[in-house]
Amino acid sequence: MNHHDVQPVSPLTLTWVHRQLDPGERIVGTEVLHGGITADVRRLTVATRGGGTRDLVLRSFVDPFSVERAEDWLSREAGALTLLAGTGVTAPGLVAVDPTAAHCAYPSLLMTHLAGRTVLEDEGLETRVPLLARKLVAIHALRPAERPREYEALTTADTVVVPKGADAAAWAAAIDVIRRPAPRYEGRFLHRDFQPGNVLFNAPPDAPSEAPPDTPSDGPSDALPARSAGTRITGVVDWAATSWGPADLDVAHCSTNLALLHGPAWGQRFAEAYEEAGGELAAAASERLYWQVRDPLACSEEVRLVARAWRDAGRAALTTRAVEERLDAYVTALMGVLG
């Protein structure tokens, strides 16, 4: 899956998009939206009949790996966006979907554009983590009339990639954990890719994207930046992996991303914030460990892709090696606390 070089929008796809517009509207601009791994995403600026403009977002799967799975992913996303309309969880509105590329050059989904931006920098994280936790609790509280399909595990004990120089004993113990049968759980509506890259904030775009090298963010701090006042979530995007399963899975995924973006302690802090917001996780430590460690082990298989996406989004210091080191530290910490 290589999305470093985004493909141009084909005339075939543009023709399909034009058929979804209101009479008299036309596309007057396109902008590539970076930060994703599995899809090419663009903002399309549409001139309206009244002389104004509105924005849409075009999401297309272009590489062979994603194209093979696009019908499932895009159908699930379209269903989720339809379900979320009118709930308290703000998500894009579905405009049209072509999951099999019957009309487009590649499988594609067209949706409304939400205000806000993703925020991946360290500054203001103390404020954003509780907001992320409360939003995830709200997602898990949804009770759709028709449940999405059961979650997929995404990794096995035999496919984990242990980083070079990692704590071999900790990783071996973690891998043994996921060899066990999955614990019983109470099902919840899952986003399944809930993490900072898929959450939009009203934060101003002029905040620094990287903490200075001499001030690493390896854990929570008591200082709250003044610019964090009034920060709020404006929406959640990328619902292609919507599933039914344990809340622990979504919490573990966001925890892993926070640990790799900002330092291992932030992963553990998110699980705490989720419970503080009223969310419920597995009661037994052994069950919680099973779900919590499964996600970083899955991440081990795609560290290079994740690190590159974050660098493209402005986190230049997050080299593959830097992310591997944080992943090792996080897995080791989980095994020390819960193992």
Rank of each mutant, 00 (worst) to 15 (best):
S209R: 09
T215M: 05
V97M: 07
R304V: 08
P264Y: 13
G187S: 11
G230P: 04
A223I: 15
A203M: 12
P220K: 03
W73S: 15
T100E: 09
V97E: 04
L260K: 04
R19G: 14
E275M: 14
A115N: 08
V177C: 13
R19S: 15
L131C: 09
Q7F: 01
G52Y: 12
A80S: 00
L58P: 01
T242K: 00
A96I: 00
L297I: 14
A313N: 07
P208M: 03
A166R: 13
A313W: 03
G29H: 04
P92L: 09
L200R: 07
S221V: 11
V162H: 09
D63A: 13
V161A: 15
T159A: 12
V251Q: 00
R294K: 11
L132R: 12
A207L: 14
I175S: 08
A307R: 07
E280G: 00
G50H: 09
G86V: 01
V177E: 12
A101S: 14
G88V: 10
C254W: 14
V236A: 08
T256F: 10
W16H: 11
D328M: 07
R326N: 03
M1H: 13
D167A: 13
A138H: 03
D40V: 09
R134K: 12
L120Y: 03
L289S: 08
R311H: 10
G245M: 06
D206C: 07
P216T: 11
P204Y: 02
R19E: 15
R232Y: 03
G116H: 13
H34K: 15
M335P: 02
E146Y: 01
V57D: 06
L136N: 05
E210S: 12
D222S: 10
A172D: 15
D222A: 12
T13P: 02
L125V: 15
